[in-house]
Design a protein around this nucleic acid. Structure first.
Lengths: 112, 112
DNA sequence: GAAAGCACTTTCCGGTTGGAAAGCAAATGC
DNA sequence: GCATTTGCTTTCCAACCGGAAAGTGCTTTC
């Protein structure tokens, strides 16, 4: 149980998590990568609405937080592959929970 | 264009969830309320760093999304109590997962 | 009568964010 | 030779965010 009048420690770790996942793009990018490594353009297609600039920034941030890896192959037109790390994979439970919650939330509020 | 590859429907519901929880305050406020109804000042104390203005705005948003309720008692100095709803409670799993993930993340990155 | 407490709301204002669009380097393909 | 592709980066610029601080309406306490 996470409850308790004074539970600032739990609060802190939630805060840590939220900081690392700030913005709504990061989890979506991770989700896209959870089905296999992808290239820049491919991600930008799957995560609809994101601009190149923002995607680039988010990818850097995710790499810094060791949630993804970046591999460059020096080929014809540049090939860069992004893959999710084990640490990133450990967010799958969170994504799953968010997914289910999102469904009920849509029923509750949006599809009302 | 919907690619058959990923899972755009899942992505959509995750997006819905993330939109409802946008910013890093909402989950923290919900967490504070998960241990029982609280008043404005009390929440502002527990969620350290939040300003009155933002707290007020977030509370309104949470109420609109039916994650909390607001009850006003007309007493001496005004008493307003916020409580988490069943729908809000259903986010506890997400919070729990975030909590655990935050702990390992801190080990992985911050406390390195 | 003065001060203080509660739950906000409002105003001011600087900083950050993010979209659109263009640039870039190098190697193919035509 | 020329356009094209890829994975970014840069610039411009408007919108939004959020902190600080003061105001509000009412009431109790000193």
């Amino acid at each position: 149980m996470l409850t308790g009048e004074g539970c600032p420690k739990t609060m802190l770790s939630i805060k840590d998590a939220l900081e690392a996942l700030e913005g709504s793009w990061k989890l979506l990018i991770l989700f896209a990568l959870s089905s296999g490594p992808k290239r820049f353009k491919q991600i930008s297609k799957e995560v609809s609405g994101i601009s190149d600039k923002v995607l680039s920034k988010e990818l850097k941030n995710l790499e810094q937080n060791k949630l993804i890896t970046r591999e460059v192959y020096d080929t014809y037109p540049p090939t860069v592959e992004y893959a999710i790390t084990a640490h990133g994979k450990s967010l799958e439970k969170v994504m799953e929970e968010l997914h289910f919650w999102g469904l009920t939330h849509r029923k509750e509020i949006i599809g009302k």
